[in-house]
Design a protein around this nucleic acid. Structure first.
Lengths: 203, 203, 203, 203
DNA sequence: GATGAATGAGAATTCATTCAT
DNA sequence: TATGAATGAATTCTCATTCAT
């Protein structure tokens, strides 16, 4: 009879964790990590203060929890990267579109944690190692293939890849700063960026 | 009579303010705004806690002080923008080189304030209005001229300019995240970026 | 019909209570009353937190439970006191040996509760009235008989009896403080104490 | 002019520390270490909560502060030990009188800290090493001299000394337990104890 | 009876800010 | 002006106790 007693338990725990992380994301995004209080998060989640500490050891763990949830959804996207066929022009567009879509979908979460990622050495390292660096390792061989195939110019690869990554991250920052174009024309960016990256501005 | 007693006074006050802002920049960069205490800043500046409050009304004012000092040095750079002659290829390189140089020179200050700029709505607004938006207003007519002159393609200007700005800001973020290439090959970026922006990667 | 269903029930309850008190004794002895948590005691007893509250109304009741269990075993020893024959020299040795044996056997329990007995007015009173005072009432007539019989000197009885009791309690304290001699030569004390009490140190 | 600026400062600091320790002693004695709150101590000292933390790093430091102040007054007494001349009979009486006087004078402080000394391993160790053990080291050679001089019997010294120390500590405990005789006839104890220790009870 | 998730009151500690000297 | 002791509001985290299952 009691066929899946643990899965149900585990599901309840997961649901509670998510409920708390949702609340934390919202409050952090508004007030920032230090500005937010456990009480506010608890009220947002409609639970008692102490309950949070059943699921997360410290306030900092909430931030890590948000970051990890974010990474998971990033990783789901990463898979798509590899699906892309040989056409490197459409690769760029698809790739950028996906990245910007993720930012769009989880914007509040980024807003909640990016300031503290930039501030806290541990978080910086965690984020760089877990998220940014893997992107580089994943992208570099692809670029190298294209160079070898003569599809793109033999550029300084490390610097170029970082520049492209910076473009995406910079757009996130620009949007966080409240730039209206970055907010309202978000969908236009992938194509413009692709054109820029592939063919440049010069006639 | 006493014609310039105030200038001397004012200079002393300015010196003291700078001494405090230097200390604050250093401490904020290491510990973040909330992580830093007035005592730590006072110790770094080798003055008493209370003295800080003679020159700055609140802790937050220190942050604004740093931001404003930063803006001034940015503005000094902005002038150079206009010096650039007609050659739009060298314009890009010079422009980007200058922007990255400013970041390089004031990196610690950026590290000290960027996280809190991204977090605090007022600071976000202040920074966007005072620093980012002027860049757009300044650059857009120049680009339009070039388009009119047939030098560059008739792109979506707002989006393109934001993409280029994002590249610079994203590099700052990448460097804050500790990316070794962004730190060690910082000087290479302007040229690579210029080549990318003008001619793209595709052969 | 069911003639002794309660005794079995009662026995089960008693067993559970003892199981919990054993766990509490161990944890209190290590961490102290306030330092110990119900969760730790529950884990030590391998039951759930809530179960403890079926058998004990509050955390404080656990302390009282330990104290009462201790008193019972003390009382069992008290009986021996009366067995002792007329020889008052051997009485002392036997008496002290028994007291020190009890301390030895229940040392952990003493360690668990003595600090809180000394601190808490109610517990102090409870312990004094239930344990210490009865000793005095029990011992005093015996001493008086000996004085009447000319066996011992006509001393200030109240003070003398307290001094002897203090010796035993002080040894407990010394042992709790970790004194190596008090721990390792515990068995030597009754004889030395008896010699001291009866004949003194002076030649 | 500013001849003793530091001594005045130092004196103020010392006075404040003592003011706080007095308050802490009183509150700890009543409610115990864990039962007492910083707020209560602050109120007792008529200062703000935060002020306590200028003079003591943690609540535990208050306890150590009380203990150390106690040790100092003990040490002042210790000197007297050595003043005592060759008459070992009067030595005992003087010695015990002094010890009991110290207990009498600082009873509240003992009440405040003894429970927690007995409970906390570090404090136990601190107290034993700093206070109890020195007593043994100090007393043992004196006893050995007396044995050598044939003044007292060749007893098991370590055990005997501990027994005598235990007597004193046990009386403190007895008094803490509220024993009326120990409280009201405190002054009688040194003589009775001396008589007991030197000549015993037996006729 | 047994469980353990949820509760929320309560405590230690920090730190921006003030102000008498 | 400069100082730094004093303030006390505010915050994180703990844990005895309850109660629905």
């Amino acid at each position: 009879m009691a066929e899946q007693p643990e899965p149900i338990q585990a599901q309840l725990i997961k649901a509670r964790r998510n409920q708390i992380l949702d609340a934390a994301t919202q409050v952090f995004a508004t007030k920032g990590f230090h500005g937010a209080t456990i009480r506010q998060i608890a009220q947002q989640a409609e639970i008692a203060d102490g309950t949070i500490y059943i699921y997360f050891k410290t306030k900092t763990d909430l931030l890590l929890g948000i970051l990890n949830r974010l990474n998971e959804s990033e990783r789901r996207k990463e898979d798509m990267t590899q699906e892309v066929g040989g056409d490197f022009a459409s690769f760029f567009c698809t790739y950028l579109r996906h990245r910007l879509q993720v930012i769009d979908a989880d914007f509040q979460a980024f807003q909640a944690i990016l300031p503290d990622i930039l501030r806290t050495p541990e978080l910086r390292n965690h984020y760089y190692t877990q998220v940014i660096e893997p992107t580089f390792s994943l992208t570099e061989p692809i670029f190298q293939t294209w160079i070898a195939q003569g599809l793109i110019k033999p550029v300084n690869l490390a610097v170029t890849i970082r520049t492209i990554t910076a473009m995406v991250m910079g757009l996130l920052v620009l949007r966080m700063l409240g730039d209206r174009v970055a907010i309202e024309q978000w969908a236009q960016f992938p194509e413009v960026m692709t054109a820029l990256i592939l063919h440049g501005l010069a006639k």
